[in-house]
Design a protein around this nucleic acid. Structure first.
Lengths: 340, 340
DNA sequence: CTTGGCACTCGGATCACGGGAGTGCCAGAC
DNA sequence: GTCTGGCACTCCCGTGATCCGAGTGCCAAG
C-alpha cells in the first residue's frame, strides 16, 4: 500500500522531470498528479526514495531528479509501452514500403527513427553471417585483373577486384565461375567459407594459384569487417536539443558517432534478442557517456536478429514512447526484409 | 605607405582574433606585432578600417573583430598560403597510399582533412559524368532476374537487379553481354548513354524487350543521382570547439550535415576549378550559416575536377593553414585517382 | 500513517559598484 | 602631413550584497 504509493511517486517524478527538465518538488508533484495525499506525505516518500537511491537532489533545497537506478526501476516496473498513434504507424508503413533496396531501407529507417524519437538514431546494416550465398560472379577486367562479385540472400552485394599472377582466358574464368557457384550457392556464409578453403586443391596445379587468389577475395568479402561494422546514423541535429549539460555531453557523443566501432559497442548485445533493451547512463560501456541512455533492439527477417537498431539520447528521455518507436520500426523493417 | 600599414593592421587583427578568439584592441596589437608605431596611430588606422567596413566593434569600447569583408580582404590580398610541415605532408602521403579502393580513399581523405584542419570535413564522391566505362557485366540470377554491373574507370561499381519478362538462357545473356560491352567500353558516360539508347533496336524483336530492360537499368545507373550526390562527412566532433556562438551556429550546422544535398550546395561551384575557393559567412547560400565559412576545391585525376572536397568552419578560422591543407589533400587524392 | 505548520537552507535573479580595457579626439612634436 | 602622448569617456564584466521563493526536514497533532 505504502510501497505502492512510493512507486507511484517515483513514476510521477520521472514523468515530470522528463517533461519539464527541471527538478521536481513535492508541491508541484501533488498539483500535477492525483496522488490523493498531501505534499508532506509525498515528502516523506521522497526521503525514503532518496534513501534507497532512486532519486537525488542536485543540491539541498532543490527538487529531486531520478538517478540511473530510478530510471531503471521506472523502465522495468513502472512504465507500460506507450502505443504509437495510428498516424505514426501509417507513417512508418508508407515510408518503409517505398524502399528500393537494402541501403534505402537502412537510410529510411534511420531517418524515421530519428524523427519519431527526436533522438539520434543508429541502424546497423544487417550482418552477413547468417545469410546465404545467392550467386558468385567472376568478371575478367583485362590486364590480369578479375572482378569478383558476391551476392547474398539479404540483397547485399560485395565486390572485390583482384590482381592475378597472369592473364586468364575466357574458358578458364567460366570454369572457375561455375565451380565456385556449385560450391557455395545456397550455403550459409560459415559453411560456404569452409568449403571455399578446400576448393583450390580440386583444381589442377596450373590454375590453383588463380583460384586461390579468387577464393581469398571471397573469403575476405564474406568476413568483411567493413560491412558488418557498417552503421547509419541520423538525427544528429537532435543533439542540439540536449539543452542541459549541453557541451558536456555533446562532445563525447559527437566523437562516438564518428566511430562506428564505438557505436556498435553502444548498441551492444541488444542484437541477440528481439526485445527492446535499455541501457541507462553508467550501465553503458563508456564513462564519458554516463549521461546518455541507449534504447535498442535486434531486427531481421523471421525470428533471427541479423542486426541492431536503436537510439541514443539523454538519460532524461521518454522511455515508453521511445521504446515503442524503436520496437515498431524494428518490426516493420524486419517485415520488409522478410519480403525482400 | 599609410595604406600599407592599414592593411598590415588588418592582417594583424585577423591573425590575433583567430588565435585568441577575442576582440583585439590597439594596445595588444602593438604588443604582439612589430608595427613600429604607437597604439594611437593604430587606433586611427582602425577607425579608418572600420569606416571602410573591414572591421567592427561588438560594442563600444571593446576591441575590433573582422567583418566578412575583412576576412575576404585578408584571404584575397593579405595572406600567403602557409606551407604544410614535412610531418604533415608525410602523414597525408602515407595515410592515403594505403587506401584499397575508392570508398577507402574517400573515407581516409575525409578523416585526414578533419584532422589536419580541425574542422568539419566534407568529401564528395567523384562524379560519374566524366569517367568512362570499363566493363559491363550481366549475370543471370535465375527466376528471370538479372544482375547488371557497371564498372567505371574511376573504380566505382554500380549494380542493379532487374526483373525480366521471361527466363533467359545462357547463350542469350552471353550475346547481350558481348554486344553491350562492344557498344560502351571505353566510352564516356554521356556517349555510352547515347549509344545504349539505340541498342535495343539492333536486336531481333524476340530479345528486344529483355535488352530494353537491361539498357534501362544501365542508363539509370549511369545517371544515378544517389552516387553523384554522395558525400562523406568527418570531424563533426570539431563542432564542439566552436565555443563562441555555440548553440547558435551548431544547430543549423548539424542539420546541414545530415542533408547531403545541402552540403553539395555548400561546396558549390568549387568543383569547376582546381584552385581553392573560399566562401565567407554571408557569401554562402544559407542564411542560417552566416557565421560559417567554406574552404573547398575541386579534385580529380589529371586536370579534370571530378568532385569537390573541403571543410566548413567558423568564419573565424585559420584561412592560410586551412587552405593549404585542403589544397594538399586534394592534390594527393587526385594523384591517387590518377594511378588507380 | 497522514497532515499542517514552521523554521531553515540555498540557488538564482537582481542590482550596485568599481576596475579595466578600449576608444576618440586633440594638441603638440617631428 | 603624420605620428604620438595625454586625457576624458564609455561600457563590459566580474564581484559582492541582497532578497525572494521553492523546497526541505521535522514535529506535534489528528
Amino acid at each position: 500500500m505504502v510501497e505502492d504509493r512510493k512507486l507511484a511517486v517515483l513514476r510521477a517524478i520521472v514523468e515530470d522531470y522528463v517533461s519539464t527538465e527541471e527538478p521536481v518538488g513535492s508541491k508541484s508533484l501533488v498539483d500535477r498528479h492525483q496522488l490523493g495525499v498531501s505534499p508532506a506525505t509525498v515528502r516523506n516518500d521522497m526521503a525514503a526514495l532518496e534513501e534507497e537511491g532512486f532519486i537525488t537532489q542536485p543540491h539541498t533545497s532543490a527538487g529531486r531528479i531520478p538517478t540511473d537506478k530510478g530510471y531503471r526501476m521506472f523502465v522495468d516496473r513502472l512504465s507500460a509501452v506507450k502505443p504509437l498513434t495510428a498516424a505514426e504507424r501509417r507513417a512508418i508503413a508508407t515510408l518503409l514500403e517505398g524502399a528500393i533496396d537494402l541501403d534505402d531501407v537502412v537510410n529510411r529507417s534511420v531517418r524515421l527513427l530519428a524523427q519519431l524519437t527526436r533522438q539520434v538514431a543508429i541502424v546497423q546494416y544487417p550482418t552477413l553471417s547468417r545469410s546465404t550465398v545467392r550467386h558468385v560472379e567472376v568478371v575478367d577486367l583485362g590486364n590480369a585483373r578479375l572482378l569478383v562479385v558476391l551476392i547474398l540472400s539479404t540483397g547485399r552485394v560485395e565486390q572485390r577486384v583482384v590482381e592475378l599472377p597472369a592473364e586468364l582466358d575466357e574458358e578458364h574464368t567460366g570454369e572457375i565461375r561455375g565451380r565456385l557457384n556449385r560450391t557455395v550457392v545456397g550455403e550459409r556464409l560459415v559453411d560456404a567459407s569452409a568449403r571455399l578453403v578446400l576448393l583450390p586443391d580440386e583444381f589442377d596445379p596450373a590454375q590453383r594459384g588463380v583460384v586461390a587468389v579468387v577464393v581469398a577475395a571471397l573469403l575476405e568479402a564474406m568476413s568483411d569487417h567493413r560491412s558488418t561494422e557498417r552503421v547509419a546514423v541520423g538525427g544528429t541535429a537532435n543533439l542540439a536539443r540536449f539543452g542541459d549539460g549541453f557541451d558536456l555531453a555533446i562532445r563525447p557523443m559527437l566523437e562516438a558517432l564518428e566511430e562506428h566501432v564505438v557505436l556498435l559497442k553502444l548498441l551492444g548485445e541488444a542484437s541477440s534478442s528481439s526485445t527492446v533493451t535499455v541501457r541507462i547512463g553508467h550501465e553503458g560501456p563508456f564513462e564519458e557517456l554516463a549521461s546518455t541512455s541507449v534504447v535498442a533492439t535486434g531486427y531481421g527477417p523471421g525470428d533471427e536478429a541479423l542486426a541492431t537498431l536503436g537510439i541514443v539520447g539523454p538519460t532524461r528521455m521518454d522511455y515508453p514512447g521511445t521504446m515503442a518507436a524503436v520496437r515498431a520500426v524494428a518490426r516493420y523493417v524486419s517485415r520488409i526484409l522478410d519480403e525482400g
